[in-house]
Design a protein around this nucleic acid. Structure first.
Lengths: 342, 342
DNA sequence: GCCGATTATGTAATCGATTACAGTTTTTGG
DNA sequence: CCAAAAACTGTAATCGATTACATAATCGGC
């Protein structure tokens, strides 16, 4: 109750410290321009008055939005939580607000993203969705958003925006190599959805390593999935019906692996006894699943952080420009879902 | 490229339509105050110039933040995605930006939430986290946030903020009744974490119905969990060791049910053959899990929507005040994880 | 001790909206 | 047909910051 004064403005601070508002502003944004003694006086006054800068006023004057938008394909997928945490952390020091939108539940109309830029509601965007149409991106460019869009994890083929992602092909190679090291020869792969860039990257890494290791290949061992639990389950059915069953399966996502495992187990097979399974992502659940999942870990926190930093470098004039594109290393995490073939 | 003019302002519209900026503003926010003819002229001018209101200017003038904050305990839990979608939808028509923060990954310091209000960065908040300290809430009140905080799903005992939640006790009762109808008598319950309001509501609903139906009760049939996969798995171990095993288990969350089922199956039991399992929430995965999970559905989308509407009613002066507290109905969804006892 | 360069500070315009108040026109009622 | 009420519309202040420009103070060098 004691604090219900209206909030202090820069005017109040100026009055208390007996300087002009210009000086107060400078203390805040360009401290070197003002002498030590007045700086101290102003900082004292700020403390005394409890002054906090009014973002709306600052944004208006500086003609910026003070916000960035994060486009998430499906917030429900546990995979994204760590990434979002990383992003938030990356923006924590800045004065940018972080808006999050789900591109699946509220499908991004052609002009929605561009609209955000047009209306000056955001200064930049991070897209985790590689399914944004080139047209939509083109529209953003129209509003001068050229270099204020960053792609994270996924990307749009043929567009020049910065991309932060994991080393997907290497992850696939690690998975295959691990299975090979255990003695597996007949290795299948459940892919992501057609047309997804990650699907391609991981499939190609897998095929490449399989070739390098001179492992046998059969067309039906490449099973089309879509990163979902269901598709894993579907894949299990297909595998159960095969004449020539693989002894190990590399899944393009952990969720797929879960569906696959439960399908295989329901079909009477043992994992990893009869079939070994490797996932991709290392989401939280993978550690505690039964059996604990061997998988390829992406550093989700770091991915998010990095993307935030890159975007900040673009929108905030003060930041030093970082290298835009970066590929983060992945890591093989060996748990209980893989074992030598019987 | 053709559009790289700087964005039109209200001045531009005024000039084109030959009226004052005041009139343009009125057309936008109070159309009845202006005559039909000028209104049409202004709207034409708006269309012609491609004018869009500058939120920073509006927010500054109206002394508001133009944003609301959503506090989510753990964005990684699939349960929250549908809720967030509902919230977004609820705010879609308004000019409020929706900020989302994860209270687990970036633990909400005592004064963080209050700080948002103090700095005028938000006009209101929806908390899905019932673990906010009374002190922190008290601080918000200090900044006049009394009636601009809404609790959703969870709440803080002893505080007077509006609460939108599902009928948790009824959900528990439905679950028990369903198992009873199938012929089960020995029913166990895996709870949520101690101190959580949902844990209490669901446990009490369960106990109440069990009593009403005169079913046997044993202390060890109430197993402490924490809504996580692991706790379900842990519960499975306990159940496997029991002398007097229950024939059915009601879990306080779907994730718990998944952990439980995989633990039971790993222990050699069949679900639902040997033990039936009911969950709570009906997250996406439950439909596709193997076996598909019988569970209590919460209308997550509706919960989110409702909370958004209630908060809008508080922060936007124009909205008609809705009843603040509301309890939404739940629904029993029967799938494959429950069957009569053998 | 004087002068130009440097450093520190203030003045006032500006960002783009909203709205109290005042002024003008139209309507209404008798 | 006139006064009062109602309906429109415009003028200008205001929200709270930033910053170009002007001015004042300090400094160094000779």
């Amino acid at each position: 109750m004691s604090k219900m004064h209206k909030p202090a403005t820069i005017q109040d601070v100026a009055r208390v410290s007996r300087v002009s508002t210009a000086t107060v502003s400078r203390v805040l944004s360009n401290p070197d321009l003002v002498s030590k003694s007045t700086r101290v006086a102003v900082l004292d006054a700020i403390r005394e008055t409890g002054y906090r800068v009014n973002q709306a006023a600052r944004n208006l004057r500086m003609k910026r939005a003070g916000a960035v938008l994060i486009l998430v394909p499906n917030l429900g997928k546990p995979f994204y939580s760590g990434i979002l945490a990383g992003i938030s952390e990356g923006f924590a020091g800045s004065d940018y607000a972080v808006l999050i939108t789900d591109t699946e539940s509220s499908p991004l109309q052609e002009e929605t993203l561009a609209g955000y830029f047009r209306d000056g509601r955001i200064d930049g965007a991070i897209s985790l969705d590689g399914g944004i149409s080139s047209d939509a991106l083109q529209q953003c460019v129209t509003y001068g958003a050229d270099d204020r869009i960053v792609f994270l994890c996924e990307w749009v083929e043929g567009e020049a925006f910065p991309v932060i992602s994991s080393d997907n092909p290497e992850g696939a190679r690690l998975a295959i190599r691990h299975l090979h090291d255990l003695g597996h020869k007949k290795i299948a792969h459940v892919t992501g959805p057609d047309g997804n860039v990650l699907t391609t990257a991981r499939r190609e890494g897998m095929v490449q390593e399989r070739t390098r290791l001179k492992l046998p290949a059969r067309p039906e061992w490449i099973i089309r999935g879509d990163f979902s639990l269901e598709s894993g389950h579907e894949a299990a059915r297909k595998i159960l019906e095969m004449d020539e069953r693989p002894t190990a399966v590399f899944c393009a996502a952990d969720m797929v692996a879960f569906g696959l495992i439960s399908g295989l187990v329901a079909g009477g097979l043992k994992v990893p006894g009869d079939i070994s399974v490797v996932g991709f992502d290392d989401i939280e659940m993978s550690r505690s699943y039964v059996p604990a999942l061997t998988t390829i870990r992406q550093d989700r926190h770091q991915l998010g952080r990095r993307a935030a930093e890159v975007l900040l470098g673009k929108v905030a004039t003060t930041s030093h420009a970082l290298p835009s594109n970066s590929t983060l290393p992945v890591e093989l995490v060996i748990r209980a879902s893989t074992a030598p073939p019987s």
